[in-house]
Design a protein around this nucleic acid. Sequence first.
DNA 1: CGGTTGGCATACCGACCGGTACATATAATT
DNA 2: AATTATATGTACCGGTCGGTATGCCAACCG
Lengths: 186, 186
Amino acid sequence: MTDNAAPSASERLLDAAARLFYTRGVPNVGINEIIARAGVARMTFYHHFPSKDDLIKAVLERRRVERAAWLAQADERASTPRGQILAVFDLLSEWFTAPDYRGCPLLAATFELGGQLNAARPYARAHHEAVRAYFAARLEAAGVPDSGALAAQLHLLLEGATVVALVQGGPAAEAAARAAAEALVP
Amino acid sequence: MTDNAAPSASERLLDAAARLFYTRGVPNVGINEIIARAGVARMTFYHHFPSKDDLIKAVLERRRVERAAWLAQADERASTPRGQILAVFDLLSEWFTAPDYRGCPLLAATFELGGQLNAARPYARAHHEAVRAYFAARLEAAGVPDSGALAAQLHLLLEGATVVALVQGGPAAEAAARAAAEALVP
DNA sequence: CGGTTGGCATACCGACCGGTACATATAATT
DNA sequence: AATTATATGTACCGGTCGGTATGCCAACCG
């Protein structure tokens, strides 16, 4: 019983912050708005998170785990390693057509927080490595030589598709990414 | 004689704003800092740009032209259409290793300005279309069938490389992008 | 019962934000 | 010489920011 009953104040804060950060950008959302949306008193917020930076980090870690779970969905969509790799790109099209799609939240935060601070970069980097590891493991299982290099190429397609889908809109980027992946994976 | 003599106040403002916006993020840079760096009085700024938004748009348009010029450099680096396409990826490695590299400025602004405002998206979208048009024209000249679809795939590799280079650091992303491009272009 | 815990409410702080008012100086044009 | 355009310097506006202070409440549990 890890999560029962009504969500606690800190969970509601994380939920509200994650939504607002994603749709409007981390620096563009103030504490006041977060606590109002979460229905939580100001002091309760500072009781759970010493500062806004701590909340940001908690949200980013949550997002990272969330993205990893998203990636793992591909396993259930195909049985062969090659099928699982291509299934990742199928997942993209569903993601891109979500009404509030605004790119990968970890990458977005990396841009938004900008500067030399790098607050979000470690989380985005960890996610990128997880994606490459996912591809590499399945390429190796399929007996593809030089699996690491090809995994990096597939990763470029995935990341490229997420940003092009954001800028261009619509699911067109996914079709190109999947077509390229099919051409690259033997 | 389009640009002679010392740079005018408005040029200095654009220079300073472009630098600061890129290295620290558009919303994280205030007017005070821009005018201080440009060595320009506050009122002079508001004389040239009615508001910060107007300055942002002027900087974005400048950046868009700048990126187009960057792309055109590939023409001088190779004579064959296929060589010019691959030369674009060579340009990437030099870009990525710049000390203050922080991704494509147009994409960065799209993330930073966030929300439904979309202030930067039209500029980023125009640039994306220019990149695809560049690839498509050279693929067509090389007699490659379905040049539009392949151009979109190459574009994904390019955009993917820019964001992976930002998150991961180093020129590793460029090598993967170029290898994938060589595999995709017949 | 009494104390601890978690939450609520609100008023407040200094700092900075984008933007404006106003008064002034300089340089070229007429 | 007078006028106009361009630039400067500075003080100020309302608003919002992240963060703090203080006090009250209700539930749980020894």
